[in-house]
């Protein structure tokens, strides 16, 4: 156990001493500030008047028209969701507030997790395959430590990196949000749409849920990247392929959406937010279903990555 801790220390040293890791942190922080500034100065907010109920009713009528005209399923569902939320506000006499507040901003920033996923893919791929490209693997493996433990240390340290980045993102976006839009505002009501019902939910809890769901996606993608890296032992290929798959995922889904078996495709199940605050991709899909599909993919990636790392000769 002590040895595993030592290995994690080693991997952390190799991750954080690298220039590219520092650049990643810098990029993340810069983006949060930039988006914050754009959010504050670049967008116009609709003023909220005392006739907000009438306005919401008018908005709903507009949305209703959209629903009738639209042929696309997701679009219809999006408007239905907005209508439901507006109706909730009217029924419960909850006045809408300006979108320019700290919580809405930190909530928007959860989307940056996608960037963290890409960064972690780079970190885990480099951590595994650069040992092979630099030849350091030959000195790394000839120690009284099993290859499984070494691989596990690399995997775990990459996940620690992603947790660090997520915490940094949350703390920093809260800080920047506070500076730009004022701290406080925890009383602002947040609504979420679950299974056709609108619920009130605490912001912090809501955001932790968002991060939690994104973490599932992160773990699956990072495991995929790790297994590609240990199969091909080539950093550029591992990074390129994983990022391509992340990006191309949605396109692939669109392409395959006409088939029923699309629900077993990895990328369809990756976005779990569709069950929390959104519309499931297919009606017969549930959170449990997606989690099971992801678990199967996860196991396949993990087993392949492990087999290739531990069983194959180091020949070059």
């Amino acid at each position: 156990m002590l040895k595993f801790f030592n290995l994690i220390q080693n991997e952390n040293m190799k991750i954080y001493r690298k220039g590219s890791t520092k650049v990643m942190i810098l990029i993340l922080l810069t983006l949060v500030v930039t988006v914050g500034l754009i959010f504050k100065f670049g967008t116009k907010d609709k003023p909220i008047t005392s006739e907000w109920k009438q306005e919401l009713i008018a908005e709903n009528q507009q949305y209703q028209k959209q629903v009738e005209q639209s042929n696309s399923g997701p679009e219809k569902k999006y408007y239905q969701k907005e209508i439901a939320k507006n109706e909730y506000r009217i029924d419960h006499n909850v006045k809408p507030v300006s979108g320019k507040n700290i919580w809405n901003f930190t909530n928007e920033m959860t989307g940056m997790t996608q960037l963290i996923i890409i960064f972690t893919i780079i970190v885990v791929s480099t951590s595994i395959s650069s040992e092979f490209t630099w030849g350091t693997i030959k000195l790394l493996l000839i120690r009284p430590v099993s290859r499984t433990t070494i691989l596990l240390a690399k995997y775990v340290s990459s996940l620690i990196y992603s947790i660090f980045m997520i915490l940094l993102l949350f703390a920093f976006s809260w800080f920047i949000g506070g500076i730009l839009f004022g701290f406080g505002g925890a009383d602002i009501l947040n609504l979420q749409y679950v299974n056709g019902h609108v619920q009130e939910i605490n912001w912090v809890l809501y955001e932790f849920k968002q991060y939690g769901l994104l973490c599932v996606q992160l773990i699956v993608m990072v495991t995929l990247a790790a297994s590609i890296a240990s199969i091909f032992r080539n950093s550029s290929l591992a990074i390129g392929l994983s990022i391509f798959l992340t990006m191309a995922g949605s396109i692939i889904i669109q392409f395959l959406s006409q088939f029923e078996w699309v629900k077993y495709v990895l990328f369809v199940n990756m976005d779990l937010n569709q069950y929390i605050d959104g519309i499931p991709f297919r009606e017969d899909m549930t959170m449990g279903f997606s989690l099971s599909v992801l678990a199967v993919y996860y196991l396949i990636f993990a087993i392949f990555g492990w087999l290739f790392f531990t069983k194959r000769d180091v020949a070059s």
Binding site: N6, K14, R17, W134, L139, R143
Partner: peptide, 21 residues
């Protein structure tokens, strides 16, 4: 003898030293 080039010689030795008790 391929080493981690972005680390110092000392850090490289620490790295391998940690793998053996």
């Amino acid at each position: 003898p391929e080493m981690y080039k972005y680390l110092s010689g000392y850090q490289n030795l620490i790295h391998y030293g940690r793998m053996i008790s």
